[in-house]
């Protein structure tokens, strides 16, 4: 019998634990020429805001050893265009659609969450808490437990149907404290990690390589940090976890699952090989067969220490 791959993330039923990570898979349509989207466990759509957002000036990306920095600046089409032009395409596929949402203040998040809660084709919301809170002097929501709790409670109280996934920022002193704050304030699941803030300089010109000066580091360079954080958080909270950060192959994905993630999301690897998620899924299946594990859920948090 083939191994059982269904997982359940706070009520979001995934036919397999491999998702495409927000910001690395566009609105799905960009990749439909290159792989069968039906094979994915789910797609986490690019960070969506109430109004369209233009993003940062170029250069927006720079390659670094085994990684890349990006400062796209959350460019997106806004809620209205998303619902009218982007979502109908995505819903043609048998895959869970999760919407990553962001705002500049709590009210922005609340409004968009409320609007999306009634959209039947959506399976869940992922809260991007790495944006600066303009009402609180630009401190990122995800770096302060009190700010995070306020945000999560406000959004959670508006949702009647959709599970709320909080995507944690690694740019904190103690990610466990933030994870606990998210759990206490009503998060249904956690995803971690978002990118690590980094910087690259052109030594010839002495100018930053990104117009935004700093950017988010992703790619295989961050994988061990992400695995460590998932493992720490999994010890401290009961919430289901989506693990991500530098997954390039099935072994990278398995590390997250063994560390305590119930699902994984593939990010930067999509840019390099659009079919990476499918290859990971195949590798995962093969591993379960070889290890004589009937259900992928048995592997979750099975780290032997």
């Amino acid at each position: 019998m083939p191994p059982q791959l269904n997982v359940n993330i706070a009520g979001i039923k995934l036919k397999n634990p491999v998702l495409a990570a927000s910001g690395t898979f566009g609105y799905g349509e960009e990749y439909s020429r290159w792989l069968d989207l039906n094979q994915l466990g789910g797609i986490v759509v690019k960070g969506l805001s109430l109004n369209p957002h233009q993003g940062n000036p170029p250069p927006r990306i720079v390659e670094t050893p085994a990684g890349m920095l990006n400062a796209i600046g959350l460019e997106n089409v806004g809620l209205k265009v998303f619902l009218e032009e982007k979502l109908p395409f995505l819903t043609r596929f048998d895959t869970a659609v999760i919407i990553n949402i962001w705002g500049k203040e709590v009210a922005d998040y609340v409004t968009i969450a409320k609007e999306l809660d009634s959209v039947r084709e959506i399976a869940g919301l992922e809260l991007n808490v790495s944006c600066p809170n303009i009402k609180k002097g630009g401190i990122s929501f995800g770096t302060n437990p009190d700010l995070l709790m306020e945000l999560v409670q406000a959004v959670r109280s508006q949702l009647t149907r959709l599970p709320l996934i909080v995507k944690l920022s690694p740019n904190v002193t103690d990610i466990v404290a933030i994870a606990i704050a998210a759990e206490k304030s009503g998060a249904d699941a956690l995803s971690l990690i978002n990118t690590l803030i980094g910087m690259a300089i052109d030594v010839k010109t002495r100018r930053p390589r990104l117009a935004n000066i700093t950017g988010g580091l992703s790619g295989p360079a961050i994988h061990p940090i992400a695995v460590r954080m998932v493992w720490q958080v999994a010890q401290a909270v009961k919430l289901p976890i989506i693990g991500l950060g530098g997954i390039m192959n099935s072994s990278d994905a398995l590390e997250f699952i063994i560390a305590g993630a119930r699902a994984v999301a593939v990010g930067t690897a999509n840019f390099i090989t659009p079919q990476t998620s499918i290859e990971i899924l195949n590798g995962l299946r093969q591993y379960l067969v070889e290890q004589k594990i009937e259900d992928v859920n048995e592997l979750v948090g099975s780290l032997a220490v």
Binding site: E30, M68, N70
Partner: peptide, 9 residues
């Protein structure tokens, strides 16, 4: 990064 329109880089 991607060449296919996804990363907006």
């Amino acid at each position: 990064a991607c060449g296919v329109g996804a990363c907006q880089g």
